[in-house]
């Protein structure tokens, strides 16, 4: 399977945030607690490529670094280390016109359209401003252009002079999508773009994403904590845990036969329509604080298979099958990992 050239390539990308002391900690310091600023490694040495036209889903528990990685891809955040490439060119090395072109080509669609839409501006301005500013359409053509985009995303162009609060949640999601599409992007980074929507409206928006992908040849990085949504829309899925990608595989394979113990646990927790009155069994404990990630494999305190090496060695993301990658020491053993893939008979034939 020859993969087309990647449109996006992340090479050893990391992002560190310095977390300043909060009020309680400052007070504690007055009493001599001696607390200092802490460093969060929100994204820790991530390497990932996205092919032109592909949909890559990014999943993981809250705080694991999904949004941070999404923002880095969208060029909104600079990585602390590593390289982000768009069509082979490092973003950090682009300047002036080229950088602006790359920034326009990669657009972000946010979770809460209300928070990201200026409440005092009319929809026609929200959608039309950027393409005019960047010279993609002439001012005189803006109105017609906005009407066309609105129609494309299923909004009634007659409503273009209204303000965001005059729309429903689903319509606001469409406004956010229209605004991103208006600058003719190549890549959309969608961060929890359907999380605030009712299932029926979510279905409409997911269908819209799929249609737009065909129509405009878009590439997506689809960030979501909703595995059902990611499974539905993605070609490949990356699973994040405490800043690291722990598994990366084609969507159908990862959902049918997860390799990493964390992926397996995560998938087991997804409520499904099909099984009835399931006993919810549980992955024990919560995701540890990213301020104090566990040593070695970050997952070892919650992992049912953890052994000595897991506490000291960081497992690398390694190829385990064609197109499949996983970061778990069990894959180094002589026996294939006795995961779900091999225990539930009908799943895997080979």
């Amino acid at each position: 399977m020859a993969m087309p050239d990647p449109i996006i390539a992340l090479e050893n990308v990391s992002k560190r945030f310095v977390k300043p002391l909060d009020a309680a900690e400052k007070i504690a310091n007055l009493f001599g607690a001696g607390l200092s600023e802490q460093v969060v490694r929100a994204v820790d040495n991530v390497t990932l490529t996205i092919a032109e036209g592909e949909v890559v889903g990014l999943v993981g528990e809250s705080g694991c670094g999904k949004s941070t990685l999404g923002r880095i891809v969208a060029g909104i955040l600079e990585p602390s280390a590593g390289t982000v490439r768009f069509r082979g060119r490092a973003l950090a090395e682009l300047s002036g016109k080229e950088r602006r072109a790359a920034d326009l080509a990669i657009q972000m669609v946010f979770q809460d359209p209300m928070a990201s839409l200026n409440p005092r501006r009319r929809v026609v301005e929200i959608i039309g401003e950027a393409p005019v500013v960047h010279g993609l359409v002439r001012p005189a053509e803006m109105d017609a252009y906005v009407c066309e985009i609105m129609a494309r995303v299923g909004l009634d162009p007659a409503t273009r002079r209204r303000y965001p609060h005059q729309f429903s949640g689903g319509q606001r999601a469409r406004i956010g999508i229209a605004r991103a599409l208006a600058v003719k992007p190549k890549v959309l980074v969608c961060d929890e773009s359907t999380a605030a929507l009712d299932v029926s409206i979510q279905a409409q928006v997911l269908n819209l994403f799929m249609t737009l992908r065909q129509e405009f040849g878009l590439t997506y990085l689809f960030v979501s904590h909703d595995l059902g949504v990611v499974e539905h829309i993605s070609d490949r899925v990356a699973v994040m845990y405490l800043g690291r990608i722990v598994e990366l595989s084609p969507a159908d394979e990862i959902f049918r036969a997860p390799n990493h113990p964390y992926t397996e646990a995560l998938l087991a927790e997804v409520p499904r329509l099909e099984p009835r009155k399931k006993r919810f069994s549980a992955l024990k404990g919560e995701i540890p604080s990213p301020l104090h990630p566990p040593s070695g494999c970050h997952f070892h305190p919650r992992c049912p298979f953890a052994f000595d090496r897991c506490k000291v060695d960081r497992p690398a993301l390694k190829k385990i099958a064609p197109g499949r990658f996983s970061a778990c020491h069990l894959n180094d053993g002589p026996e294939p990992r006795p995961g779900k893939a091999f225990s539930d008979g009908e799943a895997v034939a080979a």
């Binding site: 279905a203 997911l206 269908n207 499974e231 539905h232 969507a251 959902f255 329509l273 099909e274």
Partner: peptide, 15 residues
């Protein structure tokens, strides 16, 4: 409308 296994990649029924 609920995305699920057997609807992967096909448009969801929408209301």
């Amino acid at each position: 409308s609920v995305p699920s296994r057997n609807k992967r990649g096909v448009p969801l029924a929408q209301i």
